[in-house]
Amino acid sequence: MILTKAKKHVTYTIQGIDTHDDAMKNFLFSLGCHAGQSITIISNFGANMVVNINDARYSIDSELAKAIIV
């Protein structure tokens, strides 16, 4: 499922990144946001959410969250 449908405070394993934007995909990769890594939603504000990836906190918007498949 896409990350926007995921539950808060549950650690998921990323299945893949569904985007045509290669630059973004590479960027996410360098942060450690790619298939096999774990991701947790810390807070969900609707238009954006705070996630934990690779021991760091990021805020991402729902557009990006929709591209993350868990």
Binding site: T19, L28, N48, R57, Y58, S59, I60, D61, L64
Partner: peptide
């Protein structure tokens, strides 16, 4: 702009 994603480290 294509889908303009927002991501920022907190």
């Amino acid at each position: 702009s294509k889908a303009s994603y927002f991501i920022m480290e907190l």
